[in-house]
Design a protein around this nucleic acid. Structure first.
Lengths: 127, 127
DNA sequence: GTCGTTGCAAAGATTTTGCATTACC
DNA sequence: GGTAATGCAAAATCTTTGCAACGAC
């Protein structure tokens, strides 16, 4: 089996092409043909976070997810039924207004939750 | 040692008086004199989440935190230096605008991050 | 006595680390 | 050969679960 592939670049590629943030195990699965181990995935993710290649997103009730830092600013919609996570375009106004006096704002994250389109549809069918 | 105290109520009391969201272990520590076990803390938190007594907040790089559901709607400021979490008053406009067509929004969460007042001060002193 | 609650410990799930081995140059 | 990266497995951390014992009534 091939070893010492450019795993960092492979992880970058997978994250760049993903529709939303991925877990470490999602990445290992995507790269399973290379034989990458989960420890190596975590090591590259951690190094990439430090280097600014990736950002991490913590969502309710799930493992940490990662995505490419180069994606345009966006937020998330977490479906409480199917547990999928969707990227959401756009941003909010007035964020600075929330920051307490003397605090220094560096980043922000908005997580919407509810039902995604598919789950709204299947819920309506069931009732 | 006293057993079968009204642990749910004790947990409610601690969360009601807290300055921000607490971890399960914070709660066990706060109630250590009662001899409560961590499993019981988690069991009441889980039941209370289901009953709508508590809400959970997942913040970057830390265990799940909990707070009273009865607190007025607010958001969080997570200091990246001292890792404390502060409640933030107020809310944002235009959240509905972000929701993709066909999705049903039930909740949202805003997590600001940066430096808290104390860390801004000590950072300035150091430089 | 019955039923629900509890503590403890074990199990799960996720993430990190130690270490010998391997690949690259 | 020397250096850095890797896989495996153990450890660490956080959370859940099984179960026997206990308390409330």
């Amino acid at each position: 089996m091939r070893r010492h592939a450019d795993y960092r670049q492979l992880i970058r590629d997978v994250l760049r092409d993903a529709a939303g943030p991925l877990t470490a195990d999602d990445l290992r699965t995507a790269l399973v043909e290379t034989g990458i181990g989960i420890a190596t995935v975590y090591r590259h993710l951690k190094a990439g976070l430090h280097d600014g290649d990736f950002v991490s997103v913590e969502l309710p009730d799930g493992p940490l997810r990662f995505e490419s830092a180069s994606r345009p600013h966006h937020h998330y919609f977490a479906c409480t039924r199917c547990e999928k996570v969707f990227d959401v375009e756009g941003d909010l106004d007035g964020i600075e207004r929330l920051v307490p006096t003397g605090f220094e704002l560096n980043d922000h994250e908005v997580i919407l939750s509810g039902l995604c389109r598919d789950c709204v549809s299947s819920y309506e069918r069931e009732c």
